[in-house]
């Protein structure tokens, strides 16, 4: 029964043009991240060549090539930003559509007129959402590897491939948070528009407002792949910094930067510690979704409001 629900949901999503458009946008942004990485590579090389010429004219020695300071996966560093932006919007819409259609079209009412387990229903929906997200991110991973191949003109090292796979695994977990938020919002509101906007509100709080409180990051600073929290000299941040480990957006970015080797390495245990709050949040949200579906009145649908 779970697989029936899941396959029906996947079929339904494939027919949703808005979802397909967002998916294409995510893949396109992965390619853009590759182009930006290539541009960065080119710029550094050309600036270095010009700098060597300029310094030689002034009789100064050439500095070391700064490109050597760039980690091999820095080409895709922008994905650490695009996934929490575009990926999160995709996940919100995915979670939203997975339940909103049943709600609006009265399909939920029809399904539960039959002896169907609600647990199976939720499990099928979650399986479908998780699978579609995994497929989207797998597509993004392939585009990313393709970009690395084209720009570096060499197959990425096994360790780099491993890092990329782990990064996309973490991204999947992070995006599941927003897919579940999208589903919960549908279950908690009576209008599909309210559900989508509420889910967007939660995303805005998680992505921009919470990092401002815990680390003093201004909203645009949250758009940089690597961010530095303010010092904890201020009394306000001495208090709020205790909540920083639970700021999932910050933990995702920090863990991703370490996984992709974009910043100075930290012990693996510490990176795992960063991922744990995200995993706990996903589990909690999945339980909340299950409880809400169990209690939800599917006889009410938005079409008869």
């Amino acid at each position: 029964m779970i697989t029936t629900f899941a396959s029906q949901q996947i079929q339904s999503l494939r027919r949703q043009r808005i979802f397909v458009a967002l998916l294409i946008a995510l893949l396109a942004m992965t390619a853009v991240a590759g182009v930006l990485g290539w541009s960065s590579h080119n710029t550094i090389t050309r600036v270095y060549d010009e700098a060597v010429r300029l310094l030689a004219a002034d009789g100064k020695p050439a500095p070391p090539n700064p490109f050597l300071l760039k980690p091999s996966l820095s080409l895709l560093s922008n994905m650490v930003v695009y996934i929490p932006l575009l990926g999160a919007l995709l996940a919100l819409v995915l979670g939203h559509l997975s339940l909103a259609d049943d709600e609006a079209d009265g399909v939920g009412r029809l399904i539960f007129s039959r002896p169907v387990s609600r647990t199976h229903y939720v499990a099928g929906k979650l399986f479908a959402v998780a699978s579609v997200l995994a497929a989207a991110l797998a597509g993004s991973l392939l585009v990313g590897i393709g970009s690395l191949l084209v720009v570096n003109r060499a197959v990425p090292a096994i360790t780099d491939l491993g890092r990329l796979v782990v990064f996309y695994g973490l991204s999947w977990l992070y995006l599941m948070v927003f897919a579940l938020v999208g589903m919960i919002a549908v279950l908690m509101t009576r209008r599909t528009s309210l559900a989508l906007l509420s889910a967007m509100g939660v995303w805005l709080v998680i992505t921009f407002a919470v990092p401002q409180f815990t680390s003093g990051l201004r909203p645009t600073e949250s758009l940089n792949p690597i961010t530095n929290p303010v010092s904890t000299s201020q009394r306000f941040f001495q208090i709020t910094a205790f909540a920083r480990p639970y700021s999932v957006a910050e933990q995702y970015k920090a863990a991703s930067s370490h996984i992709l080797n974009l910043v100075t390495a930290e012990p693996v245990a510490q990176t795992i510690q960063r991922v744990l709050p995200i995993a706990v949040l996903v589990t909690s949200l999945a339980i909340v979704t299950l409880v809400l579906v169990e209690r939800h009145d599917f006889s009410r649908s938005s079409s008869n409001e």
Binding site: S40, A51, P66, N78
Partner: peptide
């Protein structure tokens, strides 16, 4: 979010942590 971020990312000085020109001693 995306277009301004792309513009910032393409800034030559933003290519290296701490600034590309500072890294080159310029």
């Amino acid at each position: 979010l995306v277009l301004p971020q792309i513009g910032d990312t393409l800034d030559a000085d933003n290519q290296i942590p701490g600034g590309l020109f500072a890294a080159l001693g310029l």
